[in-house]
């Protein structure tokens, strides 16, 4: 109860023609402030559903989500979401995309100049100051995702939710963005829940890895603390024994104990 974010015995049923389908069963997870948590599992196991419940986009059938002592039921900027496909408004420039978020969250509370500085600050945080007046169609996929992150950060969320944020990117771009995210995380120390299916990404970025069993009625299989010192460097970790140990733990979970029956 006294944890920052408490996902408390959450289950969810989706209606189908053959009666309700239980996607998640009794998911229980407590997260500290400033913790970076990855949720990993095979596709279709319901990891995005967990995130959508925390984000308020879905309502849990049983149980609930408690953030700083208050139950959350609807979406809100205190739980900003970075979507897999960036989801920028294509008719707005990068600046305007962030501006829309900043204005709807801080409009009336901050002065125009303060908001402008704040937008620019967030864009520089993701190294996108140079392209802020371009349209999303004019920049690369990785850049779009950077803007998506800037937009989420600009809402000053209590929890930052990321739904496979780098899943649609090529390996090199993904590595760059992971490094950027670690830098930002070192500076802001946000509470983050990231959905991923990439084992290396999970071990590299997380304080805690939540491994989910396969659906239907998916639940949390194991939770592993990653006690690698920060700042973490990709190159140094490649030969680090602990790193490889954590990695093989996750891989064993995914591919030995909870391998998918049908590929």
């Amino acid at each position: 109860m006294d944890k920052y974010l408490n996902i408390d015995h959450v289950s969810i049923d989706f209606p189908t023609p053959n009666g309700p389908f239980r996607a998640l069963d009794n998911v229980n997870l407590k997260i500290d402030k400033g913790e970076f948590v990855s949720i990993i599992g095979h596709s279709g196991c319901g990891k995005s559903t967990v995130m959508n419940i925390v984000g308020g986009l879905y309502q849990a059938t049983e149980g609930g989500v408690i953030l700083e002592g208050r139950e959350v039921n609807d979406p809100g900027p205190d739980r900003a979401i970075v979507f897999q496909n960036h989801s920028l408004f294509p008719w707005l420039t990068c600046y305007q995309n962030v501006e829309l978020a900043v204005k709807s969250v801080f409009g009336g509370k901050r002065s125009k100049q303060e908001m402008k500085d704040w937008i620019e600050h967030n864009l520089s945080l993701v190294h996108m100051s140079h392209a802020m007046h371009k349209l999303p169609s004019e920049i690369s996929g990785g850049m779009k995702q950077r803007i998506g992150i800037a937009r989420a950060l600009s809402m000053e969320p209590k929890v930052l939710l990321m739904d496979e944020p780098f899943g649609a990117l090529d390996a090199l771009t993904r590595a760059h963005l992971q490094d950027s995210l670690m830098e930002i995380q070192a500076e802001l120390n946000n509470t983050v829940i990231m959905i991923t299916h990439d084992v290396d990404e999970a071990v590299l970025l997380s304080d805690k890895i939540v491994m989910m069993t396969n659906g239907p009625a998916a639940s949390i299989g194991e939770v592993m603390d990653v006690k690698l010192p920060r700042p973490r460097k990709r190159l140094e970790l490649a030969d680090n024994g602990d790193y490889n140990h954590y990695r093989s733990e996750v891989i064993h979970f995914l591919h030995a104990r909870h391998a998918r029956k049908v590929a």
Binding site: L57, P75, P77, R79, F83, N85, S87, F89, W91, L100
Partner: peptide, 28 residues
């Protein structure tokens, strides 16, 4: 795109603002 509507929901835009800022530009 459902996610664009979800962005509007996260930002807690009300019905009319959502239509004006998201729905109309997207379906122009």
């Amino acid at each position: 795109d459902k996610d664009l509507i979800n962005v509007a929901r996260v930002l807690r835009l009300n019905y009319l603002t959502t239509i004006y800022k998201v729905v109309i530009p997207a379906s122009i």
